[in-house]
Amino acid sequence: MPTPPPIYLNASASISPYALEETSPPLPYPRLRCIEPDYKDFIDPRMIRRMSRVVKIGTAAAVACLREAGVDMPGAILTGTTYGCLEDTEQFLHKMVAQNEEMLTPTAFIQSTHNTIGAQIALLLQCHAYNNTYAHRAFSFEHALLDAVLLLREKEAPNALVGGLDEITDVLYCVLSRFDLYKPAADHATADASEGTIAGEGAAFFLLSPEKTPATTAQLLDVATFYKPENMPERVAVFLQKNNLAASDIDLLLWGKNGDSRYDGLYDAVAEHALPSIPAAGFKQLCGEYPTAAAFATWLAVQILSGKTIPKGLLPNTGVLPKKILIYNHFYNIHHSLILLGGP
């Protein structure tokens, strides 16, 4: 089967709990929060005053990505977010209750929708191009990515800015803790045989283009999503076959193991049956668990493929730098996704 031409990743930027600097403090398990930059370096101060935390994180990551690409005006803006702007939503709902639904101010309400981040990026850039936000639970980032690929292959845009982002607020953390999603103690993400994981958040943006440039850092070869799949190893095998690849062509499996003993076996099954003997590495010890964590994984894969700084000890000691990375992630065995990336 002929494979479609690749899409190139010409820039990437991430704001996450993980910092590349060696002097960074250790990650605060079990709830990881983003290391935030000085937003004034990225966003017009007049706009910052109305932005909630996730809007600032997303907008700053988008601007950093465009700066790296040297692109002022993207041909499309696509964002994927599961939770959207929770802080604004909470603020608005709180005021509704506290003020008996009277004298409500507009800002939090206006900013509470999922597409606020994409809109703020467009406002900042004065960009009137195609702008879409995907709020498809844990497929949000992958679907934004798919939309970008379709746009670029149909030549509807010369390039596309694509990002995945989510925040964890105090209220959300408290609510999700009641559902036993998180480890009760300050366990490490990769701790064995315990239930629950660590909470995370982050934003990662990419500039995609059908054209390879000197700045190209990686190739996006394929993306696929699977809703409650019964036999994921078989799906992975079919996915590889579709891309004319054997399991041995994959140099690294970047998997979303999150230390939750209830679900990590699913990753082992894929590794054992679909990708035997392929080196594997996790990423959620760096970003925590959140529905758009695949965006961070994609950013990390780009770092690896382009030979940039990566966390010490992350990669298995094979002596060779990976040239093809398969990201396999699932969110509570409901939303499974595969993202295949190649070197520049």
């Binding site: 007049r46 109305r50 004298m103 409500l104 101010t105 507009p106 800002t107 206006i110």
Partner: peptide, 16 residues
């Protein structure tokens, strides 16, 4: 440098 959204906020502020 305020704008129309700020005007709405100011109206609510006066009332509140």
């Amino acid at each position: 440098g305020l704008d129309s959204i700020d005007a709405l906020e100011l109206i609510v502020m006066l009332q509140q």
